[in-house]
């Protein structure tokens, strides 16, 4: 009986405790989708998906800290975006900027985004996800022949070439398939 009421008290406590975070949509969402919670918050903005997913997979904002996005998402930077023209109309740029900033690595409760936020804290913000220490470390054992020498990958930048659920924000090792190297895992 005593045990039972203790559990009940604990449950009530938990419920009350979580009441204070109801406003935090991300956390709440994250709590109820355990797999995603480990991963990176998926993109739920159509304009971003269309505009920033036209030349490459639409990188989740949670893959870079806000200081990096700040450098990438302005008129001047987009006119020469890694050698290409990715200019946007003013209104579209404003919408995309706001969406990205609200979901950047430091704002996310998703585990990998947190790791990226930590890995980039206090250093010059990188322009590329592939320059983030955490991301570099996760891939440093993959030989060049599977990336640069692989015509269906070409560069580590193309996450979705290997991460089959990258568009859902899932980068778990178990979802990786390297094109032309079915046995990369051996």
């Amino acid at each position: 009986m005593q045990m039972k009421s203790k559990i009940a008290a604990l449950l009530i406590g938990l419920l009350l405790g979580s009441g204070s975070v109801v406003a935090e949509e991300n956390l709440l969402e994250a709590m109820f989708t355990p797999l995603r919670q480990k991963e990176v918050n998926p993109v739920n903005n159509k304009l971003y998906k269309d505009e920033c997913g036209s030349c490459h997979f639409a990188y989740q904002p949670g893959l870079l800290p806000p200081q990096s996005w700040e450098k990438l998402l302005n008129e001047k930077a987009l006119a020469d975006h890694f050698g290409e023209n990715a200019e946007l109309e003013k209104a579209d740029l404003a919408t995309i900027y706001d969406f990205v900033m609200a979901n950047a690595a430091d704002k996310s409760y998703y585990k990998r985004a947190r790791k990226i936020a930590n890995a980039t804290e206090g250093i010059e913000a990188p322009l590329r996800i592939t320059e983030v220490r955490y991301i570099k470390r996760k891939h440093h054992e993959i030989p060049d022949s599977m990336i640069k020498g692989n015509k269906d990958v070409k560069s580590l930048s193309y996450c979705d070439a290997c991460h089959t659920q990258a568009d859902k924000g899932v980068f778990d090792e178990d979802t990786v398939k390297i094109p032309n190297f079915p046995d990369w895992d051996d």
């Binding site: 030349c55 490459h56 050698g83 990958v153 070409k154 193309y158 070439a161």
Partner: peptide
């Protein structure tokens, strides 16, 4: 087609 750089 395929983007010459990104392969998309």
């Amino acid at each position: 087609g395929k983007h010459h750089k990104t392969g998309k």
